[in-house]
Amino acid sequence: MSSILNRVNVRILGLALLAMMFPALAQDEVSAKAWLENMSQALHEKEYKISVIQLQAEHISPLVYIHGKVDAKEVAFLEYLNGPPQSAVRVDNTVSFIEYKQAPYSVNAKRIPGVLPAGFAGDISRLESGYQFVLGGRSRLAGRPSQLVRLIPKDDFRFGYQIWLDMETALPLRYDLMTKDKQLLEQLLVVELLVLDKAPAILIEAKKQEWPAVVVQAQSTKKTQWDFSWLPQGFRVQTNDQHRLMGNNETVEYIALSDGLANISVYISKVGDSPLPEGLVTRNGLGLSAEVVGNVEVVAVGKVPTETLTRIAKSVVIK
């Protein structure tokens, strides 16, 4: 009799343990994504000012990023603090660049490029085909408690991210872009986060300013005859056109690829006079790879491992 009771007890205990473990596991998986979704939302909804140190190889740039809402429209302002003046203003879906020795110009964009990867503020589900979301530990950054979320690449074709999110607002306080061997390529470190309760004067001022008209690319009327026999999981064609490269005036067919975080540019042109290197990589992870396919040269550029670029370049086929 007592042995039966014991068995029942053991079973109940076992079930209780399982019940405790599985929801915990399930919850972890949900909440890593939920954290990222909160971040994406916070980047759009919150009003804040962050002072940031951006590291790319040995290159350090301090910058200030201010975001808020004016007349129900998102307004953001970015300024690099060192070197020649360089800044950008976003009002709704228009980003204007104000730079040293250059007439300001505007483009249609949902984010100011160069601070946080655009994918951080986009649809997080889009990233799931290429990355696994894993919750990490907690630590203190910019004087605030933060939660680590890892974006682990599901294959070797892209780099991984670690993002630390402010526990209170879910705004990013730091991110690292790393190779598979944990070599740091790029880091963004918030040194101060100010959560604002109303849009600061500079954003109200920026909203009032008249910015240059948006420049727009003419739609390519020529159908591209190029396709890819292979692309890494999650990568899709974003756009394509034909244009000339600055500097050498070369005419290229251009195809943009993205997995939501990593962006790759593919250029197809006639074979050049001088051979390009098979693989070239800058210290911040931006790589270039060139392949001669038939009588054309395919050049792929992007912040992914050069092996990925080479394989994509080799996968270009005529439809």
Partner: peptide, 19 residues
């Protein structure tokens, strides 16, 4: 040529971020 490609890639990040 390397410069031309890398520079164009950077530029495309600005122009095509709306895609």
């Amino acid at each position: 040529r390397i410069n031309a490609y890398i520079q164009d890639h950077q530029l495309q990040q600005r122009l095509n971020s709306d895609m």
